[in-house]
């Protein structure tokens, strides 16, 4: 199992957006790593580019405050589970997930096209 979360500039908080988050936090087998999101500055199609990045990293569980329709379609095809972030700190979300306290995300929005 590999978990991913969008991270904000401070590299600690959950980023309110997914596809244009500056970083992603990955957690697998108790080991955590942070990588830059290649889609953060995309002119268009950030949702698909970020989704491709997460699929390529072999992510199986995604924790995010929100997710666009296009990215959700990719995650669905990849068989990824998506949970709704409930905490400000990424570490708290990870702990909450481990305790089974996070709910599945089942509302997916249309594009924001870079507007926060």
């Amino acid at each position: 199992m590999k978990i991913a979360l969008p991270l904000d500039e401070d590299r600690l908080s959950v980023c309110p957006v997914l596809a244009r988050a500056p970083y992603f936090l990955f957690s697998a087998g108790g080991e955590e790593s942070i990588e830059e999101n290649p889609a953060a500055q995309a002119q268009g199609g950030a949702g698909m580019q970020a989704a491709q990045f997460l699929v390529d990293r072999g992510v199986t569980v995604l924790i995010t405050p929100r997710c666009g329709e296009n990215a959700a379609e990719v995650f669905k095809a990849a068989g990824m589970e998506i949970f709704k972030s409930a905490n400000k700190a990424a570490a708290d979300d990870l702990a909450a997930y481990m305790e089974g306290k996070l709910e599945a995300l089942n509302h997916f929005h249309g594009g924001f096209h870079g507007i926060r």
Binding site: G45, A46, G47, M48, Q52, V55, E73, V74, A77, A78
Partner: peptide, 23 residues
């Protein structure tokens, strides 16, 4: 093809490319 598409209309998942026609 996925890398070439600057609009990111293609995503490669589970051994096949997906197309986002509106993109």
């Amino acid at each position: 093809c996925v890398d070439f598409c600057r609009f990111h209309a293609l995503v490669y998942v589970k051994g096949k490319p997906m197309v986002f026609s509106e993109v």
